[in-house]
């Protein structure tokens, strides 16, 4: 497998696997083309808007698991506005890159975070500047 050491580390020891009961926001996205599905749970502080906790579950390839893991790490401790900046590029860079055919897997992570934020925003009737309504299937993008 052409994965970097960081990817393999996050694949073998995924951080933050699991779910959050009564999460502030939950996002699930899939890529119909490769069949993979990712779900992100966010626990957000009402006042500070800081992501106190973040967990994931992923049905997917090695890259999907590793990007989920890395994405949760990157999002934790950030405000919801900063969490928006956790792009797939940032996740990939943090993982020392992905093979070209696996770039789309990192998009799944970005979209799952956005979906969870959207869910939070809807539940709390707020708008988060710059957040667009996420798609449930991202395969048309690649």
């Amino acid at each position: 497998m052409n994965y970097s050491e960081k990817v393999m580390d996050h694949f073998n020891n995924p951080r933050n696997v699991g779910e959050i009961e009564n999460a502030s926001g939950v996002g699930t996205v899939g890529n119909a083309k490769c069949g993979d599905i990712m779900r992100i749970y966010l626990d957000i502080d009402e006042d500070t808007k800081i992501v106190k906790d973040c967990k994931f579950k992923t049905f997917g390839c090695g890259a999907a698991v590793a990007t989920s893991s890395m994405a949760t790490e990157l999002v934790k401790g950030k405000t919801i506005y900063e969490a928006l900046e956790v792009t797939n590029k940032a996740v990939m860079e943090a993982l020392d890159g992905l093979p070209p055919v696996k770039v789309h897997c990192s998009l799944l992570a970005e979209e799952a975070i956005h979906a969870a934020l959207w869910d939070y925003a809807e539940k709390h009737h707020i708008t988060i500047e710059g957040l667009k309504k996420p798609k449930t299937d991202i395969s048309d993008e690649d």
């Binding site: 497998m1 694949f11 069949g35 049905f59 997917g60 390839c61 090695g62 999907a64 698991v65």
Partner: peptide, 14 residues
């Protein structure tokens, strides 16, 4: 069911 092939292969490989 509920799992994906590549992840399975990587772990078997290990």
């Amino acid at each position: 069911r509920f799992i994906e092939g590549e992840s399975l292969l990587i772990l078997l490989d290990q």
